[in-house]
Structure formats: structure tokens, C-alpha cells
Design a protein around this nucleic acid. Structure first.
Lengths: 231, 231
DNA sequence: CGCCAACTGTCAAACCGTTGACAGTCTCAG
DNA sequence: CTGAGACTGTCAACGGTTTGACAGTTGGCG
């Protein structure tokens, strides 16, 4: 069991700055939490903090507003981490997490994680780097949303997800398990609006889609198209 | 001169986790860079990294796309820091910086700053906290932009700026030196669109404005209005 | 102290995405 | 293998923003 936890922790980019000995130390403190599709894992506003690493399955990050409208920020795959409030103890979570498929989470209590970092300070630079890259991503999204039209935004977001899911993949198609509604929730659009945009992109051969599934056959082609239609 | 640099560094929240002795060490390595309104300080894409602290004046953070359209992310006042790429050496800057007024910057070379942190590891938790809060802010903006209509976005952004400029101010009016065009550039709107939104907010007594200046007389009233019109 | 450049107010037409509604299609669990 | 539920395609009407254009206002620089 601990072996399994250790494997998950090792797969997490945030923790890869820590020596294996350190990961062995925390592994027994971590909790394995299996989940089923659409289960709510965390809600926006919770104060309790833990570092969560996706061990299996997919997790949607986002939140729901008072009117019941959902906003989805991103979709995480195994190896991804979230719960950035571990770095700001006492802050409420800005977003919630919902299971997108069945899977499991490995949760390291916030204080254990922080204590570990204090004991292995050589891991700090890597940790700062990871956080700063995440900030970089968030700002890119803000820029895209401000400067691009709907097709541009949707395309950029798909590219973003693709890169996140497989940073060093070679050429080849990437498929997401996303409905039109999910995409609408990511972009602040409606299901019908997304429909039109996807149809446009499909006509240009940049994406393909079937029920609940979207495929980008060629990331570079999509990127080239997007770059061309706005600096 | 070094005294002056030291004062600026001490005013910076990012550095307040470092003991004064540490700040005295870096102060001589820092460079003071005066600037005039509208001068370009950094351009998007530059790789060289430095931690910049605003010593005086205001700085616009944002970038310009190939079509010449500008996107503004935020406006920094004295004591604010930027140049998050110091944490990810080699990454290009995601955004540029432009002088909004006359003023001056204090720049600490990236490697000197990183070396300093390594020498005073007790400052790391605070540093992570600051970065994580910045991420929090960015994500809030993404959410607002996805879920709210134009008046909601503009109002929220004004609140955001107000809180950033004076985190622990008591009640009382806050004034920004922003033209309609600046606001339009922050929101991805047009000058004319902003006009309509501001007129609406003004009619409700939530803001006042004159040439190049916007005043929020009562932050709480604005917040209450925004909370009411969307969870 | 006057002029120019920057900022502002306003309008009509065009556009794009939303709203709301309904029928068609696929998938998966039983 | 079959039915219910989830997902999708499409349409017309509506509404808010942009576009483009122009005149009016302000403030600071010379």
C-alpha cells in the first residue's frame, strides 16, 4: 500500500525536487482516497488544507456559483497536484474539485507537507518554480480570454490542456473526454455557442469530435492556425 | 543611496520574510532605475530575469499583441513586486511592464535573489505564500470573467485593484488614475462599452469619475452590489 | 494663457453569442 | 439487447457589444 502511495508521490512533478528518502517519510502520513465519477472532492471555500496528488482517474477543478452555474478551470490527470492553499495555510480554497471519472487521490496533510519542505529546504526552488509556472498558465488564460474571440479561446484552451496532459509527447492525436457543456463551462459560454465554434474548427480539420470526446489530431496545426489569426 | 534601496526593499511584502541583515546584503547588488510615464520597462518574452520592486510611481503590467492591442493585467503601486520569472529561470516573461506615471524601480538580479533565499531558507514559506496568493488572485479573475457580465467584471476588477492598493485601509474613497481605455484594456472591452458600464454604476452611486480618474466612494457598497447580482 | 493632444459622450448599424425550445442520436447499465 | 438518460443539432428571436464616425471637453505644456 505504502509502495503504491510512494509511486504516486514520485510521479508528481511538484514533489520531484525531494529526495526519495523524503517521500518515504511522508508516504505513511498520506491518505489514499478513492473516488467515483462526479463525486465532489472539495468545495470552494473550505479552509482545511492538504496537498492532493491525482493517483488515478481525472479530476475537474472549478467551482459552482450561487446560481448553480459551474465554472471549470482545468482537468487534471494522474500525477497532477492541487490544493495550492497548502502554501497559504488558513486561506480558503478558491476552487473546488470534482471527480471527472473514477479514480483515486493521495492526500498529504498540509502541515506534514510543509514540515517536510522545512526539513529538505533544497526542494524549495523547484517548488517555487512549479507554483510560478502555474501562475504563468493562469495569466496566459486571462490574456487569451481578453484578447481572443470565441474560436480563439476554445482553441487555446484545448492546446493548453493538451500540453498539460502530455508535456513531452511527440506528434500524434490527443483526445479529451469532454462534453460540449464542459467546454462551455470552461469558457463561460453556452453549449450552443460551443457547438458553433467546434463546427468551425472541425471544418478546418483542426479537431474531430464524437459523443463526449474531442480529438486534436495535430497540435502544431492547431497552434499554427491560432497564431495566424492573432499575433 | 543604499539606505534608500533598503527602505524600498523593506516595503516589499515578498521580502518581508527575510531578516534585515539579508536585505542589507542584497541592497548593494540592486539597481535603481528611474522611469518616466509610458516608458516601456520590460517586454513580454524577455528571458533575462530580475525581481523588480516598485520604489515610486505606478507600473502597468500587461502586454501588447501583434495587432497592437494592449491587454493590461493590473496596476502596481510602490511596494509591489513583479518579475515572477525569477522563480523559473530561463522562462520568458509572460507579460511586460510599462510605466504608468513617473517613478522608479529597484531591481535585484535574479541570481542574487535566488542565492539570498538559499542562504536564508526560513524565508521560503513566506515566499511560497505570496506566490500562491498571486495565483489565487489570477484564478479569481478567470472566474469572474467567465461567470459575470460586463458590469460585474468591471466592478470586481475595481474592487480587486482597490484591495491591492490598500489592503488594510479603513472605509473611505479610493481613487484610480485610469482612463476608460485602460479599463477597456483590462477587460478586453472597448472604450465605448466601458462607458456604458461605468454610467450604470455611476447612476447607482457606486462610483464617480472625471477625466482619467475613477473613484470608488464606498468599497463595501460596491461589494454588496456585486454579491447581490451574482452569488 | 492659449493651443494641442488626449480623453470623453453619443449614435446607428452590424454582429455575435445567448435564450429557450424541441427533436434526434448515442451510450451504457441492467 | 433494450430503454432511459445524457448528449447533440438546430432554429428563431432577442440583446448586449463592437464598429466606425464625429463632435465636444479637459488639462497640461510651451
Amino acid at each position: 500500500m505504502v509502495d503504491h502511495v510512494l509511486e504516486v508521490l514520485k510521479s508528481c512533478s511538484l514533489l520531484s525536487g525531494l529526495p526519495e528518502a523524503a517521500l518515504r517519510e511522508v508516504a505513511p502520513l498520506a491518505r489514499v482516497r478513492p473516488f467515483r465519477a462526479n463525486e465532489v472532492l472539495y468545495q470552494r471555500g473550505e479552509v482545511q488544507s492538504a496537498l492532493s496528488v491525482v493517483g488515478a482517474g481525472n479530476v475537474r477543478i472549478g467551482s459552482t456559483n450561487a446560481e448553480g452555474r459551474e465554472i471549470m478551470l482545468t482537468l487534471f490527470e494522474p500525477g497532477a497536484w492541487f490544493g495550492d492553499t497548502v502554501f497559504s495555510p488558513g486561506m480558503p480554497r478558491v476552487f473546488g474539485a470534482t471527480a471527472h471519472t473514477d479514480g483515486e487521490l493521495v492526500e498529504v496533510p498540509g502541515q506534514d507537507y510543509r514540515a517536510l519542505l522545512a526539513r529538505y529546504p533544497e526542494a524549495y526552488p523547484r517548488t517555487l518554480d512549479m507554483l510560478s509556472r502555474r501562475l504563468w498558465s493562469a495569466i496566459s488564460i486571462i490574456e487569451d480570454n481578453a484578447l481572443r474571440d470565441m474560436p480563439g479561446r476554445v482553441g487555446r484552451r484545448l492546446l493548453f490542456l493538451a500540453h498539460m496532459h502530455a508535456p513531452q509527447r511527440g506528434p500524434g492525436p490527443v483526445t479529451f473526454k469532454l462534453t460540449r457543456e464542459h467546454i462551455a463551462n470552461m469558457m463561460g459560454m453556452t453549449r450552443q455557442g460551443v457547438h458553433g465554434v467546434l463546427k468551425t474548427l472541425e471544418q478546418r480539420g483542426l479537431i474531430r469530435f464524437s459523443y463526449g470526446r474531442i480529438t486534436v489530431p495535430d497540435l502544431d496545426a492547431l497552434k499554427a492556425y491560432l497564431d495566424e489569426r492573432t499575433g
